[in-house]
Design a protein around this nucleic acid. Structure first.
Length: 268
DNA sequence: ATGGCCGGTGGAACCGGA
């Protein structure tokens, strides 16, 4: 079972590039982030005609996540539990019914910038950065809850976290950024420490492999990238992992997103 | 992480992104 994550930066803008990648990569399941569309405006028929079941959790203008699957989807959950007042569409999960059932959770973790700093140099945990860290704590609670089921779980998406220095071409410029602050990376490690496996690093030790290149300042041409799109696996899913790759070439295609797909192959 | 962008909204600038 091939499962991918792809921040498409707007479904309308990617209406040609996304089907082209699907046809070439042929994933069984894809978690999409930043669909930037309401559910009623998502072009579901286009993907249904390619053989995918479509589940969306969108909102107007910003954010929005979706799952496309060639296998049936059951037990769909929309929205990250733990805060009824949170109206941002950043979480969707569903059980993929195949030879082995896999619960797939697609997430678009908050960016968290801008960060305000106190006189002592420490980041102020409030505003957008406070929302990011609170969201990560809520996600940790959800992950811990799902882990009690002992099913194969895949948590994939745009985490907006650069885990380590080797995951950025120029780590020094990110020192005061919400994507790389110690508190952000610690919260990411706390997720892993629940017993999850970060699929890409489990299979690719080399530094300098990225999933995002900014549209500005020739970042792609200079390979000035960061690795922020991740797939985290429960022990039962990690046991099935046979491959994990970044589809880097997609960034050089026509009208690309600023992110590229990352995918895993599970023996499931 | 910028000299240089892009997408959505709404119908011009402006917000949000990473």
């Amino acid at each position: 079972m091939k499962i991918a994550t792809f921040n498409i930066n707007g479904i309308k803008a990617r209406i040609e590039a996304l089907p082209a990648w699907l046809a070439q990569a042929n994933p069984d399941v894809v978690c999409l982030q930043e669909i930037k569309s309401q559910d009623k405006d998502f072009p579901r028929e286009l993907f249904e005609s390619m053989g995918y079941a479509v589940e969306t959790h969108g909102q107007k203008s910003f954010n929005g996540v979706a799952i496309l699957s060639k296998l049936p989807l059951e037990d769909v959950v929309r929205g990250l539990p733990g805060d009824e007042a949170d109206e941002q569409a950043r979480w969707i999960e569903a059980k993929v019914v195949g030879k082995t059932a896999v619960r797939v959770c697609g997430l678009y973790l908050p960016n968290g910038n801008p960060v305000e700093f106190a006189a002592d140099g420490q980041p102020v945990i409030a505003g957008k950065y406070g929302y990011k860290l609170a969201w990560m704590a809520r996600m940790r609670a959800r992950v811990a809850d799902l882990l009690t089921s002992e099913e194969a779980l895949v948590f994939c998406g745009d985490y907006n976290v650069i885990p380590q220095a080797e995951d950025a071409a120029k780590p020094e410029v990110w020192a005061r950024d919400a994507l790389y602050l110690p508190q952000s990376r610690e919260a990411f490690r706390r997720l892993l420490n629940l017993g999850l496996t970060e699929a890409f690093r489990a299979r690719n030790p080399a530094p300098g492999q990225y999933t995002f290149w900014d549209y500005q300042a020739g970042a792609w041409e200079r390979n000035n990238g960061i690795r922020i799109d991740h797939l985290l696996l429960s022990p039962q899913a990690a046991d099935l992992l046979t491959d994990c790759q970044i589809d880097k070439a997609v960034r050089g295609g026509d009208k690309p997103s600023d992110h590229v797909p990352v995918w895993i192959e599970l023996d499931a």
